[in-house]
Design a protein around this nucleic acid. Sequence first.
DNA 1: CTGTTAGCGCTTTCAT
DNA 2: ATGAAAGCGCTAACAG
Lengths: 331, 331
Amino acid sequence: MKKRRPTVTDVAKLANVGASTVSRHLRGVSVSPEVAIRVAEAIVQLGYHPDETARALRVGRTRTIGVIIPQVSNMFYSRAVQLIEEEVGRRGSAVILLTHQESRKQQAVQLATIRRYRADGLILAPAAGSTLEELRSALPGTPVVAIDRLISPEMDSVVLRNREAARTATEHLLSHGYKHIAAVISRPEIASFQQRWQGYVEAMAEKNLDTILIQAPDHDQLRYALTSSFLGQRRPDALLSFSNRVTQTILLAFDELAFAREDRIPMLGFDDFDLASLVDPPLSVVRQPTENMMRHATNILFRRIEDGELMEPQNIALPGQLVYRRSCGCS
Amino acid sequence: MKKRRPTVTDVAKLANVGASTVSRHLRGVSVSPEVAIRVAEAIVQLGYHPDETARALRVGRTRTIGVIIPQVSNMFYSRAVQLIEEEVGRRGSAVILLTHQESRKQQAVQLATIRRYRADGLILAPAAGSTLEELRSALPGTPVVAIDRLISPEMDSVVLRNREAARTATEHLLSHGYKHIAAVISRPEIASFQQRWQGYVEAMAEKNLDTILIQAPDHDQLRYALTSSFLGQRRPDALLSFSNRVTQTILLAFDELAFAREDRIPMLGFDDFDLASLVDPPLSVVRQPTENMMRHATNILFRRIEDGELMEPQNIALPGQLVYRRSCGCS
DNA sequence: CTGTTAGCGCTTTCAT
DNA sequence: ATGAAAGCGCTAACAG
């Protein structure tokens, strides 16, 4: 005798009520107190647990939120996922986590997955080069909010004020007297990096200084580009790193060259991380208000799920915070 | 006119076949080639995407795997989640990600969530102090494999050979001539830490050396305990850190005390991480074979889902790898 | 406030 | 190889 999972009907029978009454009780709709007790008892007695898949099929809402990011093993995104999970859980939904590894093809696969699972909404950090159309058509009718990377103002989004932050950061570097500041970028197709590049260019132009770009498609090649640059004739006298992953690569390059603290090129990087204050010298960074950002993202998503299309597209851009430690030249 | 999502029936009508034929086609069961084409065309024409929730209800399998960990924002776990996501995705399922923040109450909530969503299986890093019974009874009939922390040999598990690794690590420290080696632990209720403690104790006992325990319920207090110990009479001459989070706290304590590289107490820590080689001095660590572990975990889980209870409980314990950098005293 | 009934979209007998 | 019909567990009308 294999014991079937108890259903509403089982509970209903045991409590001597109709199935719909059990359903009502479950959803907190008006039920006579006396009946409520009987139902509650029957539920614990049978060890009944509602079936979300059945509910989803009937109601058309799955209480699941898709989250698609480049990868979890990047401090910024793992923190983001943590916050989203908490926020979404608080609202009685669960997170379906998918990664696209910066590949649009993989992203397409994951979007299709979200579609099959009928997630109520999606929080997405779009893969480099994604277009609004490709995203929209993959999930018609499903609310999407973009995080970290802005694709189009027509899509809800929550991002950093990238241009402004990069500009301020560059200006700070300039205020230390550096003139040959290099921007270090991994994948320039990524929207947020483009905006940061703009901000950097603006700040440099204002002082009539030439821009320097150190860039490579992957981090191994980037490290190579960095070491060559550091050893070359036109070695930059300061660095602006566009992501924490890039910052790591820069540190690796210093290490490879056995640069002592004094040799290290002053730098300032995007994204704060746990050990930033512990490297030598302590890293000055642009800190993102990640918690706030994810709260906004979840809020917007759920409003969109409930209210539908009525609302104007929301495009939130939050200011970064410059954290001055030593690496930029501050004492 | 609101456009309904196309269903198998819509596809069937358009292709002039029965709904079951469409279903068969979708699942790759024998269908006459001529019909297959008509169905395929209808599918693209309508933009049909199967509904997993309906399938799940009917079939009783959701193609969903629960993953519950303490938190995503810990390098070890974020890496683990990344690997699990890939592995699970490869098998056509999706990950529902939940965190318990090291709280058994929160863990109970999340287990109930997994139950409601009818996940086919669960990969779990149990909260400190969890018992087999509490875990089992929360999810009767659902396969669970424990990772990182062993609760009971009756439950499938994939963990590090913690005792052995700690012992080897301690022995290595001893080989450098240190005698007052302190074990630094955050939450001693965590199973893996207990095993590591055992290994440490064994190695110390073998040399007739006294054990030293530096421990605190949270990382702020731990940092305080560390600084007191470093400044006190019986300052340890080497440290064995039990997790990367603890290692960070130790580094923070060094920093707080403004210990220069020479003042820093030699140490060796569990868990490798990206910047381990970049701190000063570079950190010697016990590296976990995370990729292998997660592959094993997923394999076991899916076998369990398919074959059911027939299989003996699997308890995999993989050896750690000692990575010698400088911090332990090696040159 | 409560019970009956129908049906969400799919798969699975059971005939043909 | 194919179609008709039943049913997975739930909720939303609808009557009472």
